[in-house]
């Protein structure tokens, strides 16, 4: 059943509505668990759209196996999604810096508060992001170390390749995930794929993971696939950041997800005006290239990739 969770009138003959679809078992019981699938906080990240679609298709095919509540929130920032805008258009604000919001605040804070109110109390929330338009990511879950104990066991069931436990940061306290995690509703932040595109393989992988989680939570009685055992990184030194030494056109040479040897070529920063190579980007250590630059134009400092060191990956 589609429901509007919060709405506000816009100046010229339009209403902004944030909607969810609630799927319930045909014969609901009194004490059901609830999973919420959230995406579209960043309007230019679309990987989660496919997951919302695909997950519901599969649930409806075997509806008899559903034994809990599934809430699907595909568009937390509807104006952004419909206008190819990452933030909230007109406000030029990153929606993921507005939480927990404020019912008495401005329009964006009001919407954020409505979202938190509706999602709060879920037994598990999956907040699906798709990196941004610059970088492609392997399916991963990012966890603030403050919430590690509760979230890592859930994340292990979600069929991702990588769990990245990162340090706490004040700036991140205004994210959707932090707001809910710090008030007792567990949220797993998934990052996968790339902005403005759909990567079906990743979407299907996560859908399998969500079914597995639902089964473990008692929301799904049907068969599920065996999930991947993710690499977990807790040490900041496990990850190497590759920032551009100069501006130019980045042309990748390595495959995303490749297990690289130290010194192997990842890509070149080039100067199309003179036809020259400005810098060769090489792996500083053995490891897995879990992030790679997608958008070719780089400034000095732009991130071109991230490597998870071989020791942390645990492969031979």
């Amino acid at each position: 059943m589609v429901k509007t969770i919060t709405s506000v009138g816009l100046p010229i003959d339009e209403i902004l509505e944030i909607k969810k679809n609630r799927i319930m078992p045909d014969s609901p019981s009194g004490d059901m668990k609830r999973i919420s699938i959230v995406t579209g906080i960043h309007g230019d990240e679309l990987e989660g759209q496919y997951v919302c679609f695909g997950l519901q298709q599969r649930i409806m095919q075997e509806k008899e196996n559903l034994s809990g509540i599934v809430d699907v929130y595909p568009a937390m920032n509807p104006l952004g999604i419909d206008s190819v805008t990452r933030g909230i258009p007109a406000f030029d604000l990153d929606m993921n810096r507005l939480f927990p919001g404020n019912k008495d605040g401005n329009m964006t804070e009001y919407l954020a508060a409505g979202i938190i109110e509706d999602v709060s109390g879920s037994d598990c929330v999956i907040d699906i992001h798709a990196s941004n338009i610059y970088l492609t990511e392997i399916p991963q879950i990012r966890i603030n170390e403050l919430h590690e104990d509760r979230l890592v066991p859930l994340a292990m069931e979600a069929n991702v390749d990588f769990i990245w436990v990162h340090g706490a940061s004040t700036v991140l306290e205004s994210t959707f995930a932090y707001s809910l995690n710090s008030t007792g509703t567990p949220v797993l932040v998934v990052e996968m794929g790339v902005g403005m595109r759909i990567t079906k393989d990743y979407g299907n992988q996560l859908i399998d993971g969500i079914f597995n989680l639902m089964q473990k939570m008692g929301i799904w009685k049907g068969n599920t696939k065996e999930v991947k055992k993710p690499v977990i990184s807790r040490n900041p030194d496990d990850v190497i950041y590759l920032n551009a030494s100069t501006g130019g056109l980045f042309i990748p040479a390595a495959r995303h997800g490749a297990k690289l040897k130290k010194g192997s070529l990842i890509g070149r920063i080039t100067d199309p005006l003179r036809g020259e190579v400005l810098d060769e980007v090489k792996a500083p250590a053995d490891g897995m290239l879990f992030t790679i630059r997608e958008y070719p134009v780089v400034d000095e400092g732009s991130l071109m990739g991230r490597i998870l060191k071989k020791e942390a990956c645990g492969y031979e």
Binding site: R86, G87, Y134, V171, Y241, N243, D299, E300, G301, S302
Partner: peptide, 21 residues
């Protein structure tokens, strides 16, 4: 390029992203 706000990047990081630098 990336729509980041320099006035949200202090004190900065010399090995980081463009606006952090």
């Amino acid at each position: 390029v990336d729509n980041t706000d320099i006035n949200r990047m202090f004190p900065g990081y010399d090995m980081g992203e463009t606006t952090q630098r």
